Amino acid sequence: EEERTFTNEEEARKAKKEAEKRGLRVTVTKDGTTWRVRIG
């Protein structure tokens, strides 16, 4: 499991799409101005 943080919503969405392409489970949460993308 890996967690990545982004300040840019577009980049967070891109990371989510890429992980889904690899067949991984992805959770995206917004924490104030930060987007957290949890993969795995």
Rank of each mutant, 00 (worst) to 15 (best):
E1T: 12
E1R: 08
E1A: 13
E1H: 12
E1K: 09
E1N: 08
E1G: 11
E2I: 14
E2A: 08
E2T: 11
E2R: 10
E2N: 09
E2S: 10
E2Q: 11
E3Y: 09
E3D: 07
E3R: 03
E3N: 06
E3G: 05
E3K: 03
E3T: 09
R4H: 14
R4F: 15
R4I: 14
R4K: 10
R4T: 08
R4N: 05
T5D: 06
T5F: 13
T5M: 10
T5L: 12
T5N: 06
F6E: 01
T7K: 07
T7L: 09
T7Q: 09
T7E: 10
T7N: 11
N8P: 01
N8D: 10
N8E: 06
N8I: 04
N8S: 13
N8Q: 05
N8K: 06
N8V: 06
N8H: 05
E9M: 07
E9S: 05
E9F: 13
E9Q: 06
E10L: 11
E10W: 14
E10N: 08
E10D: 12
E10M: 09
E10V: 08
E10Y: 11
E10I: 10
E11M: 06
E11I: 02
E11A: 09
E11D: 13
E11K: 03
A12G: 01
A12R: 00
A12M: 11
A12Y: 05
A12L: 04
A12C: 15
A12E: 01
A12H: 00
R13A: 10
R13Q: 14
R13E: 13
R13W: 14
R13T: 12
K14I: 10
K14M: 11
K14P: 01
K14E: 13
K14G: 06
K14F: 09
K14N: 11
K14V: 10
A15E: 05
A15K: 03
A15H: 07
A15L: 08
A15P: 00
A15G: 01
K16F: 13
K16L: 11
K16S: 11
K16T: 09
K16E: 14
K16D: 01
K16A: 15
K17R: 13
K17M: 13
K17E: 15
K17T: 11
K17F: 12
K17G: 08
K17Y: 13
E18L: 06
E18D: 09
E18H: 06
E18I: 07
A19H: 04
A19D: 01
A19R: 01
A19S: 03
A19W: 10
A19C: 09
E20T: 04
E20R: 04
E20N: 04
E20K: 04
E20H: 04
E20C: 09
K21V: 09
K21S: 13
K21G: 11
K21E: 13
K21D: 13
R22S: 07
R22Y: 06
R22G: 04
R22V: 06
R22F: 05
R22I: 08
R22E: 05
G23A: 02
G23P: 00
G23T: 01
G23D: 02
G23L: 02
G23N: 03
L24I: 05
L24Q: 06
L24E: 04
L24A: 05
L24T: 02
L24G: 02
R25Y: 10
R25K: 10
R25G: 03
R25W: 09
R25M: 09
R25L: 10
R25S: 10
V26S: 03
V26N: 00
V26I: 02
V26D: 00
V26P: 01
V26E: 00
V26H: 00
T27P: 00
T27N: 05
T27K: 05
T27W: 08
T27Y: 08
T27A: 05
V28Y: 03
V28L: 14
V28P: 00
V28C: 11
V28T: 02
T29Y: 11
T29E: 09
T29R: 06
K30F: 15
K30D: 04
K30P: 03
K30N: 10
K30W: 15
D31C: 12
D31W: 04
D31F: 07
D31S: 07
D31T: 07
D31R: 04
D31Y: 06
D31K: 05
D31Q: 07
D31A: 06
G32P: 00
G32F: 00
G32A: 03
G32K: 03
G32N: 04
T33V: 08
T33Y: 12
T33G: 14
T33Q: 13
T33E: 15
T34M: 13
T34A: 09
T34D: 14
T34L: 15
T34K: 12
T34Y: 14
T34W: 11
T34S: 12
W35G: 12
W35L: 06
W35F: 05
W35N: 10
R36C: 10
R36Y: 14
R36V: 15
R36S: 04
R36A: 03
R36G: 02
V37P: 06
V37M: 05
V37H: 01
V37A: 00
V37S: 00
V37F: 02
R38D: 06
R38T: 14
R38K: 12
R38P: 01
R38V: 14
R38Y: 10
R38W: 09
R38E: 09
I39A: 03
I39G: 01
I39F: 07
I39Q: 02
I39K: 01
I39H: 02
G40A: 12
G40E: 14
G40H: 14
G40Y: 15
G40N: 11
G40S: 14
G40D: 13
G40P: 04
